Lab assay of single mutants.
Amino acid sequence: MQGVVKVNSALNMRSGPGSNYGVIGTLRNNDKVEIIKEVDGWYEIRFNGKVGYASKSYITIVN
């Protein structure tokens, strides 16, 4: 499943599904990501070869 990031500035990509996990990357508005699965309001995603987590509130699913 594919998604597009929708933010005003930047979205942190984290090592786990929560804001208490470390930041491993930064996503920008309109970045395209691969959604692997949903975990407690977060998406596990793949972006630029990295796998991490981002809040699903800021990612819109596209077909």
Results as ranks from 00 to 15, higher is better:
45 I>H: 00
7 V>R: 06
15 S>F: 06
47 F>N: 05
45 I>R: 00
43 Y>S: 02
21 Y>S: 04
19 S>A: 15
3 G>N: 02
23 V>W: 05
48 N>M: 14
41 G>M: 10
3 G>R: 02
45 I>N: 00
44 E>M: 06
35 I>L: 06
13 M>F: 12
2 Q>F: 11
22 G>V: 13
26 T>Y: 11
24 I>N: 06
25 G>V: 10
28 R>L: 15
17 P>Q: 01
15 S>N: 12
1 M>I: 13
54 A>Y: 01
61 I>M: 11
60 T>I: 13
13 M>T: 03
4 V>T: 10
27 L>R: 01
58 Y>W: 10
33 V>R: 00
53 Y>A: 01
44 E>W: 08
51 V>H: 13
60 T>R: 12
23 V>M: 06
49 G>Q: 13
1 M>P: 08
58 Y>T: 09
58 Y>K: 07
31 D>I: 04
3 G>T: 03
8 N>G: 15
30 N>R: 08
14 R>G: 02
31 D>Q: 07
28 R>E: 14
9 S>Q: 14
7 V>E: 04
29 N>M: 09
37 K>Q: 14
51 V>Q: 09
61 I>H: 09
38 E>F: 06
17 P>V: 03
1 M>S: 15
30 N>Q: 12
11 L>G: 05
3 G>F: 03
18 G>E: 03
47 F>Q: 05
45 I>Y: 01
27 L>V: 08
7 V>P: 04
8 N>S: 11
26 T>R: 08
25 G>D: 14
7 V>I: 14
51 V>A: 13
2 Q>V: 14
61 I>N: 05
35 I>H: 01
14 R>M: 15
47 F>D: 03
59 I>V: 11
57 S>H: 11
26 T>I: 15
26 T>E: 15
38 E>V: 07
18 G>H: 05
23 V>P: 07
59 I>N: 01
32 K>V: 15
55 S>N: 15
60 T>E: 15
23 V>I: 14
26 T>A: 07
61 I>F: 07
62 V>Q: 11
13 M>L: 10
23 V>S: 10
9 S>C: 05
47 F>R: 05
50 K>H: 12
37 K>S: 14
58 Y>R: 06
3 G>L: 03
8 N>Y: 07
48 N>S: 10
27 L>Y: 01
56 K>E: 05
42 W>Q: 02
49 G>V: 06
62 V>A: 09
20 N>I: 11
41 G>A: 11
8 N>W: 08
11 L>W: 02
26 T>W: 09
34 E>D: 11
30 N>H: 12
51 V>I: 12
40 D>A: 08
63 N>C: 06
10 A>D: 14
61 I>R: 08
44 E>P: 00
11 L>N: 03
31 D>N: 07
53 Y>T: 00
56 K>R: 09
1 M>L: 11
49 G>D: 15
42 W>M: 03
18 G>A: 05
2 Q>H: 14
34 E>G: 04
18 G>C: 03
